[in-house]
Simulated assay, not measured.
Amino acid sequence: MRAPSHTPYPESAEELQSVSLFRRLVAMLYDTLITVALLMVTTGFYKMIQAKILGTEKLKQLTEAGHFDTDPLLSSILFIVMFLFYGYFWTKSGQTLGMQVWHIRIQTREGYPVRWTQALLRFFMAWVSALCFGLGYLWILVDKKKRAWHDHFSLSEVVRIPKRKK
């Protein structure tokens, strides 16, 4: 059980609902659009730094020769940037931008924000869930509390939060 190191979310457990697969997928679509833009900007910066180091002519020659078709450094950087994007939002507010629109949040089972270690476990297991032909996500359809594999693995849950009254 988690020692309360910071404040729990204000909603009571009775106010929260489980989240359907559809709502999760639509929020993921929103976030995918944002992360694709972020990854494009990151790649642009990476290529600018490469051009500065190698020179534009040398970079062009190497690119045309196929030397950068698979670039493990760029792939690693993009993976880390994606984790930092999701990890930041999950640990700070429990909500990415897409999740905010769809009124869903990630939290611990006790109602606290997830920690960075939980965010990391969740992030990696979400990839596993997707790479197993989406079975980790489809698990929501058979789990009584609508939890995916990465929810189980990271000891977290996705909840639908009530709309705030103005």
Rank of each mutant, 00 (worst) to 15 (best):
D143R: 10
D151L: 02
K58E: 14
S76E: 04
F45T: 08
S129W: 00
E14F: 10
L16T: 06
K163G: 01
L39G: 08
T96Y: 01
L84Q: 04
S20I: 03
L155Y: 02
T108Q: 06
K52V: 11
L25D: 07
D31F: 13
A13E: 14
A130I: 10
V36M: 10
V26Q: 02
T43N: 08
L73I: 14
L141Y: 10
M28A: 13
K146L: 05
M28K: 07
A13W: 02
V128S: 12
Y30A: 02
E15Y: 03
E11R: 01
S129L: 01
A126Q: 01
G98W: 00
P8Q: 12
T56F: 13
K92R: 13
R24I: 04
G55H: 13
H67W: 13
P113E: 05
R24H: 09
C132P: 02
K166D: 06
Y30R: 06
E64T: 15
G94M: 01
E14T: 12
L120F: 13
L78P: 00
K92N: 10
Y30L: 04
V114T: 05
G55L: 07
V142H: 14
A51M: 03
T63I: 08
D71H: 07
T32K: 05
S12W: 04
Y30H: 09
W102T: 00
V41G: 14
A65G: 08
R147G: 05
F133R: 06
A65V: 05
A27T: 07
M82E: 06
F85A: 04
Q61K: 12
T70Y: 15
W149L: 06
V159Y: 01
R24L: 05
S93N: 10
W139P: 00
E57S: 12
R109G: 04
Q107C: 05
R160P: 00
T117K: 11
L29C: 09
V101G: 04
E15K: 14
D151H: 03
F89A: 04
T56V: 12
G66T: 10
F45K: 08
A3K: 15
L74Y: 05
Y86W: 11
M125Y: 07
G87S: 10
V128G: 07
L16K: 09
R115G: 07
I77Q: 03
R109D: 01
P8D: 07
G55Y: 13
G136A: 11
A27M: 10
L21P: 01
A37G: 15
H67K: 12
M28Y: 15
G44V: 07
T117Y: 14
V26K: 04
L73D: 03
S129H: 01
V159R: 02
F83A: 01
R105Y: 01
M28S: 15
G134V: 09
L131R: 10
A65Q: 14
D151M: 03
L29Q: 08
M99P: 00
A3H: 15
T42N: 08
S5A: 13
L21F: 11
L59Q: 15
L33H: 13
K60Q: 11
L73P: 03
L141P: 05
K165C: 01
T108G: 04
D31Q: 11
K58H: 10
A119K: 00
F123W: 13
K165Q: 06
L54V: 02
T56E: 13
D71L: 12
K165H: 09
I49N: 09
R160L: 05
I53S: 09
G44M: 11
R164W: 05
R147P: 01
A148S: 08
Y88V: 06
